[in-house]
Design a protein around this nucleic acid. Structure first.
Lengths: 348, 348
DNA sequence: TGTCAATATGTGAACGATAACATTTGCCGT
DNA sequence: ACGGCAAATGTTATCGTTCACATATTGACA
């Protein structure tokens, strides 16, 4: 029903096959392309009757402007590049959805990349995406390679770093304090009566969020006077399976732990399932806390105690900031704190 | 540390601030832009020593080609448009990840959109994205508005429809039979001893997957001679909460059902949690089956019986097909069946 | 009635790369 | 020694849109 041979065969095809250009619209409306261009971008600068003729011509031709041409001449595309560690995590996807929604509503398109928690992959993706001369960039975290930083600088576009509060943001950062959040959750667990609190963290030593959460946990434990033995901080790769597998090691650890704080809900759900399967009662035998507050956290049995992070707000704020940057109106701080919440449910 | 005023101020800034063009590289290497272009795209057509000079110049300038210019002249961008109902579902994100990986490895970039199961939203997204003159498109399902079809036709790019096996694909379809899958799962539940099998489906009457799964379920029930009363097919919106909430209605339904087949793992997990919370033993009091085999399905307690769908394979295949279409080498069938599996675990 | 400003539209160049064709160079065989 | 051919590089035009500026049209006011 559609194409059957190579894409260039203008002789047999109708003129309609070829996608309409602005000049086609212009001819049909009896004006020049410049007037059409104005009608589309600044309709108030075109007389009502001309506008109507042009709109009619646009409709009948199904004209859609060529963004490549537009980008080329205006020296800036309508593309926003966004890089996330993974899309398989509903915490990130919540932010992604909101970002996408906000940008789309303002005529920008999101070019998405997945870094797998690896700054080298980030660099590679960036070097590809920069070719679009994006209007703005959204990155997760503030750890980047030198070459990435150079590209970002050259691109001269607004850059928002998500998900943490770095001391020296590249441009603007939007997030919450991971250190503080881990500290507060650890403290809360102690308050709720748990003493030997283990911490399961993502094993990405270059990931500022991992490092900060570890620091927050250790700070709390130090202040509480609880020694953190080697087997109490567990480093694992991302995934439900990681959390589940870790339970076996934990239950055989020498000084029995009574609470497990996971640096991600994905890990925590895995741990919860592992514990249930191992016949441990949660939270009586082992309390479990997560990080992220994914949708399932509140539904699972027992409902997961976790750190709630404002994923939609982070997306919304960063989109707003980039757009304000683009029209020069942003005058907020370089680091925007969206906060977090300690959500106590049944698992701790 | 980065930009502080409006983006155009070439007089004070170093030349380095401005992003390098191909002509900058060419001047530095002592050749013309055409030779640089060749060095980048067909290095075998350039002499070794020239190639080296150019590579050095590219390195020192940090040159990255302007894709907008490239797209404009070559009449086709390196952009692939992919539209999915939601990104908050790890079934889809598995396909998205694989798609993204495959295309990236071949120099294409993925422009992602979220339709929220709505063909009108799809049309809107499409009309925006078509402006990039994408090299190819990946859509979910084969239900599209007339205007969408017109745009797809005009774009003259390869189009892959995912996730089902339509009778009349627009171009190529890659997926599995939703009807057959629902039929087989219903039959399996019967074989395993369940009789009054209810079906919880996504309430999107225009969604071909929903419709087909419903048809498969009803066909099986008809063949089995089990009447489907009104309260046995439940239509709900997408989300864990939907599944959970539906349990209340079910337990009070007049002819007690003994199995609940959900058209999505997300719903099934919600139902599982709802059932557990309501004190129902799964599968003794109520069997539950899902659709999709998300990562959590195998970890949850009781582990979820579900329909396994080849999400990575679907992504891989569709990427391959689009790229083969682009170089004219595709000679496979217009409908590619990636199959599905019935995964029996503990919940049914 | 002539001048000025405001409004509406047009003109030509430019954005940065590549396709198609043209030219130069060096080497081969006879 | 010379035609011819391949390899390497250059020239010119072009993609579709917008920018900066130019021109035409209108009405208001002194």
């Amino acid at each position: 029903m559609s194409k059957q041979s190579k894409p260039d065969m203008p002789e047999t095809d109708q003129a309609t096959r070829r996608i309409a250009r602005m000049s086609d619209v212009a001819r049909l409306a009896g004006v020049t392309t410049m007037t059409v261009s104005r009608a589309l971008r600044t309709p108030e600068a075109v007389s009502p009757q001309t506008l109507e003729k042009i709109e009619e011509a646009v409709r009948s031709t199904g004209f859609i402007p060529n963004y490549a041409a537009r980008s080329l001449v205006s020296q800036r595309s309508q593309i926003i590049v966004a890089l996330f560690p993974t899309m398989m995590n509903s915490v990130f996807s919540g932010t992604i959805e909101e970002l996408s929604r906000q940008f789309l509503a303002n005529g920008y398109h999101l070019l998405l990349g997945e870094t797998s928690f690896d700054v080298e992959v980030e660099e590679k993706l960036l070097s590809g995406f920069i070719g679009w001369r994006p209007a703005g960039l959204v990155l997760t975290g503030s750890e980047h390679t030198d070459y990435s930083r150079k590209m970002l600088e050259n691109s001269a576009a607004p850059v928002v770093e998500l998900w943490n509060l770095p001391d020296n943001p590249f441009d603007v950062a939007v997030g919450f304090s991971n250190r503080e959040a881990a500290y507060r959750m650890t403290m809360s667990l102690y308050e709720w009566g748990y003493r030997r609190i283990a911490f399961m963290n993502l094993h990405y030593p270059l990931n500022d969020r991992s490092v900060d959460r570890s620091a927050g946990y250790r700070q709390a434990m130090a202040e509480l006077g609880v020694p953190v033995t080697e087997d109490m901080e567990i480093w694992v790769p991302f995934g439900v399976e990681s959390g589940r597998a870790a339970i076996d090691r934990l239950t055989t650890a020498s000084p029995r732990i009574d609470a497990l704080f996971c640096s991600s809900d994905t890990l925590a759900l895995g741990a919860l399932m592992g514990a249930t399967r191992a016949g441990l009662r949660v939270p009586e035998d082992l309390a479990i806390a997560g990080f992220g507050d994914v949708e399932l956290a509140s539904s699972v049995v027992p409902a997961l105690t976790t750190v709630g992070v404002p994923r939609a707000a982070i997306g919304r704020e960063s989109a707003r900031i980039i757009m304000e940057r683009l029209n020069g109106s942003y005058d907020g701080p370089p680091v925007v704190d969206c906060g977090f919440t300690i959500v106590r449910r049944e698992s701790a």
